[in-house]
Design a protein around this nucleic acid. Sequence first.
RNA 1: GGCCCGUUGGUCAAGCGGUUAAGACACCGCCCUUUCACGGCGGUAUCGGGGGUUCGAUUCCCCCACGGGUCACCA
Length: 485
Amino acid sequence: MDKFKVRFAPSPTGPFHIGGARSALFNWLLAKKEKGTFVLRIEDTDLARSTRESEENIKKALHWLGLSWDEGVDVGGENGPYRQSERLHLYEAVTKRLLEEGKAYHCYCSEEELEKERQAQMDKGETPRYNGHCRHLTAEQKEAYEKEGRKPVVRFHVPLNEVISFDDMVRGHVSFESNGVGDFVIVKSDGMPVYNYGVVIDDHDMEISHVIRAEEHLSNTPRQIALFKALRWEIPTFGHISLILGKDYKKMSKRHGATSVEQYKNLGYLPEAIVNFLALLGWAPEGEQELFTREELISAFSMDRVAKNPAVFDIDKLNWINFNYMKQLSSEELYNLCLPHLQEAGYAGETPSMEEKAKLMLMCETVKEHISYGAQIKNEVNMFFAEDITLDKGQEEEIAAVKGEESFMQVLEIFKDKLFSMEEVTVEKVKAAIKELMKETGLKGKFVYMPIRIALTGRMHGPDLNNIVVLLGKETCIKRLENPV
RNA sequence: GGCCCGUUGGUCAAGCGGUUAAGACACCGCCCUUUCACGGCGGUAUCGGGGGUUCGAUUCCCCCACGGGUCACCA
C-alpha cells in the first residue's frame, strides 16, 4: 500500500451527526495533508433503515462543509461501485472462498436460541460469544434444518488462542484475545453482508491505507483484522478518535440540543466555523492559534496530536468561533446569512425591496457584534418591530435607578423635541442632537444615553443607540419617548 | 458482567522526569468608549485516589475509583 488513501463510510440511516462530520473532517484533512485520496463510501446494507434521502442529506452536508471527496459515490473511481448495496456480487465471491477454505460456515441457530445462550453466559460472568454449535454440521443436519424452513447465516470461524494486536494511530498498541471474540456473522440470512465483513472487503478493494473512525469501532477492529488475516490481505493502519460527549458526559444525542450538521446550518452557523471548531475538538495544534483557515488546518493537522480522551461539545466555544467568522463577512454576506431568520420571524418579506433590503442590512450591521449565529438575530432585532416594548426582567433594579434620576423625563422631552424637528433622521443628525442636548442640560455620558436607551428599547444593553434611533424611525421613537414604559 | 479505551481548571486543552503547570472559551474586574458593544489588559480556577520506581513525579509502573465504548442477522 504505497498510496495514502482514506475513506469516510457513513450509513445513511438518519440525520448527519456532528460526530460523523468530525470523522469525515479528520479523514479529509489527512488526505489533503498527505496529498492522498479521500473516498466516500455509503454503507447501506441495513435495508430496513437506509434511505436514499439520508444519503443525499449526508452528501449535501459534506459539500456544505467543503469536504469534497476525490473518489466515491457520484464522482466515481476505479474501485467502485461505492454503495455497498451495489457490491453484493463482490462479497459473494469472497464468502464462497471463505466457505471453501473452511474459514466460514453456515449457521442455523435461531435468534431465540442465541439470545438464550447469550443470557446464560452473561449470568455466568462470561464474555457472551457464539458457542460454535453449527461449526461442524453434517450434510444431513443441514438438510434437516433447511427442511424446517431455517435460513442460514454465514459465520466466520475466528481462530482460537491468538492475540490480535495492532498499533493504533491515536491509542498506541492495543491487543485483544481472539478467544474473547467468538465466531461472528458475516452474511445475514437475507444474503446481506454484515458491517464488519463489508468494511474489510471494501477497504481492501478500495486500497484504503488508513482507517480513521470513531472510538466506538475500536472493539470491532479485532474482528476485522481476523478477517484480513484469513483473506491474506494487507491490514490498513487504524486510528480511533474519541467520541464527542454532551455536557453530561454522555454521547451527544438529541437531548443535548442540535446534533446534526443540518441543524447548525439552519441555525445560521458558518461552515468554516464548524470545521474550525470540530478540528479543535480532540486535536490540538502546536502553537496557540485558535482560528484557522482551511489551508492552515491542513498544514497544521497531524494524527499524533489527536487526543485519546473524549471531548465535551462546548457550544460557547463554537459560538465564539462562529462570531469571529461572522465578523469577517461582508454586509451582503451577513445579510444573506440573517435574512432567512428575519423572514422566519416575520421581520422581512419574501423578496425584500431595495429599500427594505437597505434597512435590513443596516440592521444586521448594527447588531452584528451582539450575535454569534444567524438565528440569534431575531432576539436582537425584535425591538425594532415590537409594537410595545417591555422592560428587561433581569435588569429591573438598574433600570429603576436610571428612571429615578430627576433628569430622566427632561432628557426624553428635549430629545423628543429635537427628533420632532428633524426632517430626515440620520445617524449624524442623531449624534448632533444628543451633543446639543448635553450642552443644553449640562448632562453627559450615560445620564443622557441611558434614559433614551431605556425608553426606546426597555433594556440597558443593546446595539449602538444612534443606529437604534434611525432604525426605529421618527414616529416610533417619539411615541416611546412620550410614554416610556 | 467480560473485554477494550480513557481520567490536567466549569469546558476545549499544552505538557511528553526538574515548568511560577501554557493558551482559548465561559465567568469576574479594569481600560477604551460622552451610551451599548467590539477591542485591549488583568484575575479566579486544574494534575481522581493509593502505592511504588527515582535525588525528583502531572509525566514511568501497579492497584483502586470514576467515565466511556463494545459484546446484534445496526453500522
